[in-house]
Amino acid sequence: MLGVRPIRGEAAEGADVPLTALDAVGAVGTVLEEVLDAGLCRARAVDPVFARDVAGRVAAFVRRGGKRLRTAFTWCGWRAAGGAGDATAVLRTGAALELLQACALIHDDVMDGSPLRRGAPALHVDLARMHRAARMTGTPASFATAAAVLAGDLALAWADDLLAETALTSPHGQPLCREWRAMRGEMVAGQYRDLHAQATGSLGVDEALTIAELKSARYTVARPLALGASLAGAGTTALDALRAAGRCAGLAFQLRDDLLGAFGDPALTGKPVGEDLRTGKPTCLLAVAVRLAETSADEEAAAVLAPGATARADDTVERMRAALERTGARSLVESKITDLAGASLRHFAASGAGSAVRQEFAALVERACGVAPDRIGEDT
Rank of each mutant, 00 (worst) to 15 (best):
A27M: 14
A353T: 04
V205K: 00
S344C: 13
R70K: 04
L340K: 03
T210R: 13
S355D: 12
R8D: 11
P115E: 11
P115M: 01
W180K: 08
E179I: 10
V188T: 14
Q174K: 07
P121F: 09
T20F: 06
H196G: 04
V25T: 08
L268H: 07
E13K: 12
A134M: 11
H196E: 13
V110M: 04
A289D: 00
L176V: 09
C248E: 15
V125D: 00
K67S: 12
C103I: 00
E13S: 12
A293N: 03
V357L: 09
E34C: 04
E299P: 00
L255F: 12
E10F: 12
A341T: 01
T139H: 10
Q254L: 15
L364G: 02
D314N: 06
R358Y: 02
E33G: 12
S355T: 14
V149S: 00
P48A: 13
D194G: 09
D86R: 04
A89G: 14
G228K: 01
R278I: 02
G14L: 15
C248W: 02
W180A: 04
A27E: 15
T338C: 11
L214F: 13
T74K: 07
A226T: 07
A81Y: 10
A104H: 00
T310D: 15
P282K: 10
H196N: 04
R5T: 13
G119R: 01
D161N: 08
R52V: 05
L231M: 05
L239C: 11
W180R: 09
R42F: 02
D23F: 09
F253G: 04
L231V: 13
L91T: 06
L154G: 02
E13C: 13
L292S: 07
A104N: 01
L242Q: 05
A164C: 10
E98F: 11
G9W: 11
A147R: 15
Q191G: 09
D276R: 10
D112G: 05
C369S: 11
L364W: 02
R326L: 13
T20Q: 01
G173Q: 02
V273F: 05
V357A: 09
H124I: 06
E294T: 14
V125H: 03
A322W: 01
R52K: 12
R79F: 08
L305I: 12
S230E: 01
A89E: 12
D47L: 06
A262L: 07
D240W: 03
C248S: 15
R63L: 13
E186Q: 14
M130Y: 08
L127G: 09
R247Q: 03
R375T: 05
I106S: 10
V110Y: 02
A122T: 10
E325Q: 07
A244N: 07
L259G: 08
R312L: 08
R330D: 00
G264F: 10
R346V: 12
L292A: 12
A356I: 08
A51M: 07
S344I: 14
